[in-house]
Design a protein around this nucleic acid. Structure first.
Length: 399
RNA sequence: GCGUCGGUGGUGGAGUGGUCUAUCACAGGAGACUGUAAAUCUCCCGCCCUUGGGCUUCGUAGGUUCGAAUCCUACCCGGCGCA
């Protein structure tokens, strides 16, 4: 993997680059489509590609459980298995430590609002007996399969072994994605663990990476805490990773400062991936603060659930007012959905619970987000980033 | 015409003397979703102010009862059977 910076955004950490992988170049900044179980939900690879997607991200935990990483290896790796010829990445399972652990059965997301104190638990011990499918030990994480209840112990070494079997171009160190509700003491403890796991991930990767085809990204954690974020960036930077992931929990209000603290420390010449972030405002924020790669389930999950991105904000296509609205989602959108279907038709598909509904909405949403990042990239090339950002955010109303 | 069974909120369908504005599902309305336990989840869904409460509902009209969607009578409507 080679990363080349082509142009920088003046007065910021932003940059435009090209990330070359064994399966092709990624023009950065770029939005990575999430294909957890070796499929971008409801889309076939042609549709993913036509939406402008350059890279797809699979998931270690999910593919390990089903169909099993050995099967994927036998198939020739995740790309070949899913018929995606472009670059691929896999997440390490670190997010499942959060989603199946602290977040299990709760209404918490990794991005929270500071204004919602109900989410901030002063002491974390009062819910230690809450049911969860992931339990953290010092050596790794014990997962109880959501599919069949079987127990699986994932260590950093195991995660890297699985990821080598999955065979993506870029893989991630095993980390602990913490909940935004955790207190400082716990964030510190978790960070130490993530750092040890980073070292172990790297050692295992070096051992397995004999053909030198796979690149490993280390993950910076530290929650919302400035000191921890900086400490983590310094530590992860000191290890021989090919690039970096910025993970963990954020408060919407100070996500930009958290990203900035980290990217001011991380080496300029290596790529940075802001894990799991991808609302339109976040993309501008991330790029401006030196992020090269984003991934997020939002385009496809929102799409399947009937929420659709537009330049003026998200719309819920099932709303009554769209039932007889025969315009496309966006008049000037070049995606397959907008070129061929009306809001009324898509609303009809959703009301009728037709499978095509989620597909058409996902095509548009993915195109919208991927294309937004492309336009942001182009605006840096054209020296119009700040104007473009201002214009976009002026029109875009997030709810 | 006689007999018989049945008529419950937009729909299907529970409920057979009080805890009934009435279980449940669907339809309908609004919302949520950030490294996918998610084609999922939450809330609303008679009317009116809306914390809480007020008013009107179970084919129609009477009646019994402290109290009726639930019991009785008549009528109306529908299914089935016999003429």
């Amino acid at each position: 993997m080679i990363f080349k910076i082509e142009k920088k955004l003046k007065g910021s950490l932003g940059r435009v680059g090209v990330l070359s992988t064994p399966h092709g170049d990624i023009l950065t900044p770029a939005f990575v489509a999430v294909g957890t179980k070796a499929t971008v939900k409801s889309l076939n690879p042609e549709q993913v590609k036509d939406a402008g997607t350059q890279v797809v991200l699979g998931n270690t935990y999910h593919l390990y459980l089903q169909p099993g990483d050995e099967i994927v290896r036998e198939a020739g790796g995740i790309g070949k298995f899913m018929n995606w010829s472009g670059p691929t990445m896999t997440d390490s399972g670190g997010f499942q430590v959060f989603s199946l652990g602290a977040a299990y059965g709760k209404d918490i997301s990794k991005v929270t609002k500071v204004t919602d104190p109900s989410l901030l638990i002063p002491e974390r011990f009062d819910d230690s007996d809450a049911p969860r499918l992931a339990k953290i030990g010092q050596d790794g994480v014990s997962f109880k399969s959501h599919l069949d209840g079987s127990i699986h112990y994932i260590t950093p070494e195991k995660s890297i072994q699985i990821q080598h079997n999955l065979g993506a171009d870029i893989i991630f160190a095993f980390d602990e994605c913490t909940s935004p509700a955790e207190d400082l003491r716990y964030q510190e403890e978790a960070l130490e663990r993530t750092h040890r796991w980073a070292e172990r991930s790297l050692v295992e990767h070096k051992k397995l990476n004999t053909e030198n085809k796979i690149s490993l990204f280390g993950i910076v954690q530290g929650g919302r805490e400035e000191s921890l974020r900086k400490k983590s960036a310094e530590f992860i930077k000191s290890l021989d990773f090919d690039g970096f992931g910025i993970g963990g929990s954020f408060a919407k209000e100070d996500m930009s400062s958290a990203v900035k603290w980290v990217n001011e420390i991380l080496p300029e010449e290596k790529p940075r991936h802001l894990l799991g972030i991808g609302e339109p405002e976040d993309l501008f924020m991330g790029v401006e603060n030196g992020v090269d790669l984003f991934d997020c389930v939002a385009p496809t999950r929102l799409g399947r659930n009937g929420t659709i991105y537009t330049k003026t904000g998200k719309i819920i296509i099932m709303n009554t007012k769209f039932r007889n609205d025969f315009k496309p989602i966006e008049e000037d959108c070049e995606c397959y959905t907008c070129k061929n279907y009306s809001r009324a038709y898509i609303a009809h598909l959703f009301h009728g619970k037709e499978m095509l509904a989620g597909t058409l909405a996902s095509i548009h949403n993915l195109y919208f987000i991927v294309n937004l990042v492309k336009k942001i990239r182009q605006s840096i090339m054209d020296d119009t980033f700040y104007e473009y950002k201002k214009e976009f955010l002026l029109n875009y109303k997030s709810r």
